[in-house]
Design a protein around this nucleic acid. Structure first.
Length: 874
RNA sequence: GGGUGGUUAGCUCAGUGGUUUAGAGCGUUUGCCUUACAAGCAAAAUGUCACUAGUUCGAAUCUAGUACCACCCA
């Protein structure tokens, strides 16, 4: 059993991590198979987008998931954690467009085939990087079940669901006004818009009546859209405009010279501008509402790339912002412009491309949402959301305001919509062959020109593959009710950022509720969002984060994981380097604890002794803490759980238990227990810092041949072992007393502690006085009948102790301190006295509290008196 | 415009079913190379618990309003 300590270097070498991880994989610890005898535990890794590599925000959620996975695995569950990546259609495509642009490559020179090849290569590259990063950080996923939303199986599932929904009449195509991203040349959903406040000019423009005798003044921030004007709208409450309404006047659009009607509607805000607006239904959602209500004309003025189209005469092909400036100049010249006014308004930006969103009329595919609402509301009640009660109301509000889902995007990268056109006929089919057959059958056609079968060129919204993921990851769509699906589904806990609550979480619930009448997950934990120094969300599109590889190579994965655990995850938080350093120190502490234990096992000096006080205390204390820990983790209080372990190791195990152990390590029983306790602490640490704990465990196993060879498959200390809280309290009393004694500045070392006889029995009950001998500078405890002013008094738990003053060094600082203390106590006493004087307090407060208050008064009065006495003799 | 969360030490944050002087980590100051750890140990200092009102015997904690910050939705 000889152990060479010199073998262990100063710090844990985290470059071994790779070996350790490969070993886990080789041993298939993370692979999960159908097993009737074991309880299933299904987890899903929220698939990161392949837009780039991972950042600390991803690692946050995944680390919490890994803690759960590893703990439940140790608890004997059959944990199946399915990893994956998301193709993120629009985000990826924009990323590539920008990448090509930066390289100076003109996108227009690239044909579709080439572009698709670039897309494919990109996805291969980043899939590799992301998976590598996930492995480096130590996530215990079942890699044999890995998903990619564009993989064959996933693709098949997506198309199958589309067709199912289409057949049920829940998918339809319609011209509606949409958000148009002029950079990516696609629609985007409302959720993908960011609103930013910005100062804008509000222009006041004259619109003359047909006879040119009168005019109305309209206010607009977008004068360039006058080409699309089809009416002017007035709020009915404004009496100024009565004349125009009564006489049913018509107006002439300046420059364009088109004649348009005046309509009246409450939709115009009373406070906005002149209370009179121009209506451009093709390019404003508000105006579109008016258009529908009043059955106006509609004119589209925009091309897909954000330039003006043929409806804008001499401005055809020109950029919007350019036209705005020009138009204002022309209006000003011709006397139509009355004034400009700066106002604060919001502009809509695309979350993906950061360009201004235009509203545009467009033909798109939609999913009818109303049939999903009932089953969703029914099922959502059975899901537990954490942190508790924080987001519940939000769900209901969103469900009640939900609109049909625009599921088509005009992109290359994504699931192609399985719709085919033949002349004027529409057919939904998996591929062209099937489309051909179906058309023949449906329309009774014998011969069809294959060339005339055209595929819909839209792809599906990226979330359309995400909302089916809990089911499709288990192949539950292509093979409904397969063995795995029935065994694992639903997910036990989903952990994700609160920012995708609507995009993803709610939609998964909708899907599972409607198709399966089941919840997709039993529990959901929403984490806060990681922010940078400027409180901005860390995100791939902003690029405000450090490369993960840099962090891993500099600090090691355990440090990264511990850093994430050192922050409360319920709210948003700021991540900085200090946290990393702090965590590194903690990992080092674990390492050194291991070293001291191994070292002390080298010493041979066998004397049989039984239990000592320290063992008695720590055993109780440990089980008390583990009980608490399990409680925290069962309620997903990760932050608290980690703080508990950290304090347990640092404050209790290292500074108290081990310090004592080092001085008394000639006892075999003590050694055995110490190792046992350390192994328990290692086990509860393992989900948080898997690499270092696995390594240490292995090293210990080399010498001591443990039951389980590897910590990953060892058992979690869950059994509710009983502990005696009295023993713990007694020990804590002792510690606090020792601290007090240590603070006294004695002239020489060995001193005698005096005590009155009546307290002696109490001591035995409250304090382990044997420990006092060992830890403080006390030679002996003696009973003294008469106490004079020659003694210094100490208080601990209502027991008085004395030291001879002449054996103590006093200085001025000490005096000041005591004076300060007296002041604080006096203040406190006043508070209590006022309470006791108060008649209402005596009448209304509970009797217990009144008693306590009176006791407190007496105690504090005594303390003040004694402090004063002490002061006199210093 | 609507909603949600937040405001506690220089910084990052905990905190309680209301009643024994408001906590941690970092930072600061002081003392220590003590054979596991200076990436450590021991100690000290630091707060009108955003503001205003209400409920109450008693409010940092409950209620309302205000201000500021952040996020979400239109």
């Amino acid at each position: 059993m000889n152990i060479n300590i010199n073998k262990y270097k100063k710090n844990f070498n985290f470059k071994l991590n790779k070996k350790i991880y490969n070993f886990w994989i080789k041993k298939k610890f993370f692979n999960s198979f159908y097993n009737k005898k074991k309880k299933s535990f299904y987890l899903l890794l929220p698939p990161p987008n392949i837009t780039g590599d991972l950042h600390i925000g991803h690692i946050l959620n995944f680390t919490l998931l890994d803690i759960i996975a590893r703990r439940y695995r140790m608890m004997g569950y059959n944990v199946c954690w399915i990893p994956g990546t998301d193709h993120a259609s629009i985000a990826t495509e924009i990323k590539i467009l920008k990448y090509l642009n930066n390289k100076g490559i003109n996108i227009n020179n690239i044909n579709k085939k080439k572009f698709n090849k670039i897309l494919l290569n990109w996805s291969i590259k980043y899939n590799k990087i992301i998976i590598d990063q996930l492995k480096k950080i130590g996530f215990s996923c079942d890699w044999k079940r890995i998903q990619f939303t564009m993989n064959k199986n996933s693709y098949k599932s997506v198309i199958k669901i589309f067709i199912k929904l289409y057949k049920k009449g829940l998918i339809y195509k319609k011209k509606k006004i949409v958000n148009w991203d002029t950079y990516a040349k696609t629609t985007i959903s409302d959720e993908e818009i960011i609103y930013k406040k910005k100062k804008k000019n509000l222009y006041y423009i004259k619109y003359f009546t047909e006879d040119k005798k009168n005019y109305l003044v309209i206010a607009t921030t977008r004068p360039e859209t006058i080409f699309g004007d089809t009416a002017v709208c007035i709020n009915p409450y404004n009496k100024k405009y009565k004349y125009f309404i009564k006489n049913k006047k018509k107006l002439i659009v300046p420059i364009v010279n088109r004649i348009i009607p005046i309509i009246v509607d409450k939709l115009v805000k009373k406070k906005f501008g002149t209370c009179c607006i121009k209506v451009t239904p093709g390019h404003s959602k508000e105006d579109y509402k008016i258009y529908k209500k009043h059955k106006l004309k509609i004119i589209n003025i925009l091309n897909d790339d954000g330039t003006l189209n043929k409806n804008c005469t001499f401005f055809k092909g020109k950029n919007i912002i350019y036209v705005r400036k020009k138009i204002i100049k022309i209006l000003e010249k011709k006397g139509f412009l009355i004034k400009k006014k700066k106002i604060l308004s919001k502009i809509a930006l695309s979350d993906r491309s950061n360009t201004i969103i235009e509203n545009k009329l467009s033909n798109q595919w939609y999913l009818k949402i109303n049939k999903f609402i009932k089953p969703t509301l029914k099922n959502i009640k059975n899901i537990n959301f954490y942190p508790k009660n924080k987001y519940n109301n939000l769900f209901y509000k969103w469900i009640n305001n939900i609109k049909d889902w625009n599921i088509s995007r005009q992109l290359n990268w994504g699931h192609k919509i399985p719709v085919y056109y033949y002349k004027n006929k529409i057919i939904v089919a998996i591929n062209k062959k099937e489309a051909l057959k179906k058309i023949k059958k449906k329309y009774n056609l014998k011969k069809i020109d294959k060339k005339l079968i055209i595929k819909d060129n839209n792809v599906l919204d990226t979330w359309f593959s995400s909302w089916i993921l809990p089911v499709s990851a288990l192949n539950g769509i292509n093979k409904p009710n397969n063995k795995d699906f029935n065994y694992y589904y639903p997910i036990n806990i989903l952990i994700t950022g609160k920012d995708i609550l609507f995009f993803w979480v709610l939609r998964m619930i909708m899907f599972s509720s409607y198709f399966l009448d089941k919840i997709p997950f039993k529990n959901v934990y929403f984490t806060g969002i990681v922010r940078d120094k400027n409180k901005k969300k860390i995100s791939k599109s902003l690029g405000n984060y450090k490369n993960l590889y840099l962090l891993i190579n500099k600090y090691g994965s355990d440090v990264l994981r511990i850093s994430i655990l050192s922050i409360n995850h319920d709210n948003d938080f700021i991540f900085n380097n200090k946290i990393l350093l702090n965590s590194r120190n903690f990992i080092n502490k674990i390492w050194n604890t291991f070293k001291v234990i191994i070292k002390n096992y080298n010493i041979y000096n066998i004397k049989k002794k039984k239990k000592n006080l320290i063992i008695k205390w720590f055993e109780n204390f440990l089980f008390y803490k583990i009980n608490k820990l399990n409680n925290y983790l069962d309620n997903y209080k990760f932050y608290k759980s980690f703080i508990l372990i950290k304090n347990l190791l640092k404050k209790n195990f290292c500074s108290i238990y081990l310090e004592y152990f080092k001085k008394n390590n000639n006892n075999n029983y003590f050694k055995k227990k110490t190792l046992k306790y350390f192994l328990i602490i290692l086990k509860i640490l393992h989900p948080y810092a898997p690499f270092i704990t696995e390594y240490i465990y292995k090293e210990i196993n080399k010498k001591f041949f443990l039951k389980k060879k590897y910590i990953t498959i060892s058992s979690w200390p869950i059994k509710n072992k009983k502990y005696n809280i009295k023993i713990i309290n007694k020990f804590n009393n002792t510690l606090s007393f020792i601290k007090k004694i240590k603070k006294i500045n004695f002239k020489k070392k060995k001193n005698i502690l005096y005590i009155k006889k009546k307290y002696f029995k109490k001591i035995k009950k409250n304090i382990y006085y044997k420990l006092i001998y060992k830890f403080s500078l006390i030679k002996n405890i003696k009973i003294k009948k008469k106490i004079t002013n020659k003694y210094l008094l100490l208080y601990n738990n209502n027991i008085k102790y004395y030291f001879l003053k002449k054996k103590i060094n006093f200085n001025k600082k000490k005096k000041k301190k005591i004076k300060k203390k007296i002041l604080i106590y006096k203040k406190y006493l006043l508070k209590i006295k006022n309470n006791i004087k108060n008649k209402n307090f005596l009448l209304l407060a509970p009797k217990k509290i009144i008693k306590l208050e009176k006791k407190k008064k007496k105690d504090i009065e005594k303390i003040i008196l004694n402090l004063k006495k002490n002061l006199l003799f210093i």
